[in-house]
Nucleic acid binder design. Structure first.
Length: 566
RNA sequence: UGGGGCGUAGACAAAUGGCAAGUCAGGAGACUUUGGAUCUCCCAUUUGGAGGUUCGAAUCCUCCCGCCCCAGCCA
């Protein structure tokens, strides 16, 4: 049983409301939700919260969840986005069956509904332009004024509306408005626009229409048409709920219940569409799927697993207060999942050559190494050991600080899966003083698994045989921002100055164990003692490229930081 | 100064008038052939504030304070 199913009983106010509705016998005991993205951008981790909620709730209550594209604005939407959205939802592990819908599928019915409202005197064609409408709307504290066109007859409205559809009028010259209440304290109820004229080709309906429904007019009716029982959306639509309900009530059609929850904010990243676009446009990242992006495609390329994202979404809860979740929780979920399933391999990022002087030249031993200590059934692999090895430069210090358990002159360490070695001499470049190699000796009786091999040694290092090592490029990714709330105007008025200059570091001379010669894009590993890495999706010929997904928790780094801080 | 929401630990988040859950972060220790993982313990005498009701209040009432959203022919 994994942690997700253990948490199956997890509840929140949304699930409670749904359970109550069920108890009250509403909707004939059925639950039907929907995930309604606008196809004008890429999905990100914030959408994942909504996806997990909508699909999760449906599954828990034996209901269904539709995928519906809210494509009511042809000037902003493109079909290239629908493909990536579908891929991302599927990758996250959710299935909408054959229920892939588009608001544009309902344009004809929506038009008929609008005609009904016009006939009932509940909607009218307004000739005011956008600027005038704004002025007539009033302000937050002052009521609005009624448009001079508000009291046209149904016949006149019908005629005008038909001609709007027929393309007789220019963009912006007229709109269809709901006739509600210009005095309302809720601005959404001050005769909201239902249709606007846009002579633009739509990605699905082509040039069939030149009037397009607004969100408020399209969304609730689409929910109703699909038989949605619970329409889950974010907090900013709370003010729209009275309007959502008003349209449905006027039409007398099936009434879904809109419930609003807080959108996700994550520390050290931005999730607003505007900011994300800015990152891409200004070239701060390499595109929407840059491994530093919080987009689903970016997280995927970074090496995040769908399981870890689902687990995260389950743990953050669903509530109504604006909150910012610590990104370390996301990373924790990731590490927990990867620890469970990532095969272990050895890779040296900053190679330092060592020579084991008492080990026979030319001799090669194939050592047995477990693939994953968390999963004994994963078996083992062979790794070659020889006289010349690479170790991590950082694993050697000429003068070792307190609590530094690694290699230093005269000190012993264990080489993982191999022998205990001792550093005898340090060889330096006579001119630069740089350490070029270490001369060591090994203790032949300490081979891993051997009877007397369990001498207590504090440090264990990873290594790779020089002769057998494969070259690799490793891209070290770190958080994109140095500020905790980069999306906050006050904390970060200028996004550029809040970027982490070290969010990517490319290492081109890394050495990895020979077993990695046949990896494929997306394969993931734990590089022992370093972190989790995955093979980048763009694998150049004859070259290995690994992305660092997340580091291992590093106790030594913490100790060292504390020592330096003193 | 209109309307709609929200305030529980550093970050999330439970509690539904009856002893303030859990998770992440942080701290201490155990264990360890990954300084990983794992395990143990610590981390809110108090729920934005002040009054009130009650045997008993995070929860009910009153007032106050703070924060978020809304004036697109965007969603």
């Amino acid at each position: 049983m994994n942690s997700e199913s253990k948490r199956a009983a997890a509840t929140d106010f949304v699930r409670e409301i749904i359970a109550e509705d069920l108890r009250a016998g509403k909707n004939n005991g059925s639950v039907h939700t929907r995930f309604p993205p606008e196809p004008n951008g890429y999905l990100h981790i914030g959408h994942a919260k909504s996806i997990c909620l909508n699909f999760g709730v449906a599954a828990e209550f034996n209901g269904l969840c539709n995928l519906r594209f809210d494509d009511t604005n042809p000037v902003k939407e493109e079909s290239e986005y629908t493909a990536s959205i579908k891929e991302d939802v599927r990758w996250l592990g959710y299935d909408w069956g054959d229920r892939e819908y588009y608001a544009s599928d309902y344009f004809e019915l929506l038009y008929e509904y609008a005609v009904r409202l016009i006939k009932a005197g509940k909607a009218y064609v307004d000739d005011l332009n956008a600027d005038e409408i704004r002025q007539y709307r009033g302000t937050l504290t002052e009521p609005g004024r009624e448009s001079p066109y508000r009291n046209r007859t149904a016949e006149e409205n019908l005629d005008l509306f038909e001609r709007m559809r027929a393309g007789e009028f220019e963009d912006g010259s007229r709109v269809l408005r709901a006739r509600i209440d210009m005095m309302s304290g809720n601005l959404n109820m001050r005769d909201p626009v239902m249709y606007r004229i846009i002579h633009e080709e739509h990605h699905r309906t082509g040039n069939k229409w030149c009037i397009y429904p607004m969100y408020d007019w399209a969304h609730g009716q689409s929910d109703s048409i699909e038989g949605i029982t619970h329409s889950l959306c974010t907090l900013e639509f709370e003010d729209h709920r009275p309007l959502y309900n008003w349209f449905i009530e006027q039409l007398g059609i099936h009434q879904p219940r809109q419930i609003e929850f807080a959108r996700l904010n994550l520390s050290y990243t931005v999730l607003s569409k505007r900011r994300l676009i800015q990152l891409v446009r200004e070239g701060h990242v390499d595109g929407w799927d840059d491994p530093r992006m919080p987009t689903i495609s970016g997280l995927r390329r970074r090496g995040y697993t769908p399981e870890s994202i689902r687990d995260f979404c389950g743990r953050i809860g669903v509530a109504k207060s604006n909150s910012t979740v610590d990104i370390e929780l996301l990373e924790h979920c990731l590490r927990e999942d990867l620890n469970r399933c990532a095969p272990r391999v050895m890779a040296v990022l900053h190679p330092l050559r060592i020579v084991i002087e008492n080990y026979p030249e030319g001799k090669v031993e194939e050592l047995e190494a477990e693939i994953n200590p968390e999963e004994p059934g994963a078996g083992s692999r062979k790794i070659p050991f020889s006289r010349e090895l690479y170790i991590e430069r950082d694993d050697f210090r000429e003068e070792s600080p307190k609590k530094f358990f690694r290699l230093a002159p005269g000190r012993e360490v264990r080489l993982k899966h191999a022998y205990i070695i001792k550093c005898e001499h340090v060889v330096k470049d006579t001119e630069t003083g740089e350490i070029v190699e270490l001369l060591c000796t090994y203790d032949p009786g300490t081979k891993s698994g051997a009877p007397q091999a369990n001498r207590k040694i504090k440090g264990t290092l990873h290594w790779v045989s020089v002769k057998h090592a494969l070259n690799a490029e490793v891209r070290l990714y770190d958080r994109l921002f140095i500020k905790e709330n980069p999306g906050d105007e006050k904390e970060c008025p200028d996004m550029k100055s809040c970027l982490n200059p070290d969010s990517i570091e490319i290492l081109r001379d890394c050495k990895v164990e020979p077993g990695l010669s046949n990896v494929r894009p997306g394969d993931f590993f734990q590089f022992l003692r370093i972190g989790y890495f995955c093979v980048d999706k763009d694998l150049p010929d004859e070259k290995l490229v690994f992305n660092r997904t997340v580091t291992l928790r590093d106790t030594w780094a913490k100790i060292e930081k504390k020592q330096k801080g003193r």
